[in-house]
Amino acid sequence: MKKRLGSILVLAVVVIVVVFVRGNKSPVPAETKRSSQESSQLSPVKEEKQVESRTLSFSEVDSEGIHQAFGYLTTAEIIEFLHQYKDEERIVLLDDHTVLKGSAIIEGVKTTIEVDSETDPNGMTVADIKALLVSRQDELDKALEEYLAER
């Protein structure tokens, strides 16, 4: 079990490092491009100038979404993982539950959007995310137990 969690943590670190290194105006890997059906399900088109949002609010995402983003770790392990960042640094959760620090270009069906964790309205400081995790610790740990029991 610890070996599995260690592997997941290493994978999460690698993903974040790759996103961080490639984040400055580098194209997003092909796997993250969305099909036209997926993009049309994100939000209805209200007018031509509507800007698609590709980020989620950490405070509004459910426990499953938090665990998808951080690799099904306990709350304490997620907080430990976040210690690699300064408390004042901002990160953002993309709509595919990828955690982003920095900026990235995301290609959509009709548009290409640049997401920047420092300026995105859904971006949060690491300190605020840690506080949110602590406030939801019981809920998050229960969801993790249920997830692991199903496996």
Rank of each mutant, 00 (worst) to 15 (best):
M1Y: 13
M1V: 15
M1K: 13
L5R: 14
S7D: 14
I8R: 14
I8H: 03
L9Y: 07
A12E: 14
V13R: 15
V14K: 15
V15I: 09
V18R: 08
V19M: 13
V19P: 02
F20W: 11
R22N: 09
S26D: 11
P27A: 07
V28R: 04
T32I: 04
T32W: 11
Q37W: 11
E38G: 03
Q41N: 08
Q41T: 09
L42P: 03
K46A: 09
K46N: 14
E47R: 15
K49E: 11
Q50R: 06
Q50Y: 07
V51L: 14
V51F: 13
E52Q: 15
T55A: 13
T55Y: 14
L56Y: 06
S57L: 09
F58T: 01
F58V: 04
E60S: 13
E60W: 07
V61I: 06
S63Q: 11
E64L: 12
F70G: 01
Y72Q: 07
L73D: 05
L73K: 00
T74G: 03
T75E: 05
T75M: 00
A76I: 01
A76C: 08
L82F: 03
Q84L: 10
K86N: 12
K86H: 09
D87Q: 10
E89W: 12
E89F: 11
E89V: 10
I91K: 04
L93R: 01
D95T: 02
D95P: 01
D95K: 05
T98E: 05
V99L: 10
K101M: 09
S103V: 07
E107F: 08
G108R: 07
G108W: 02
G108D: 10
V109L: 13
V109Y: 15
K110F: 14
T112D: 10
V115K: 04
D116V: 08
T119H: 09
D120G: 08
D120M: 09
P121S: 05
G123H: 02
V126S: 08
D128L: 08
D128H: 12
I129G: 01
K130H: 06
V134A: 00
R136F: 00
Q137E: 12
D138A: 12
K142F: 00
A143G: 00
A143Q: 00
A143L: 01
E145Q: 12
E146L: 09
E150A: 14
R151T: 13
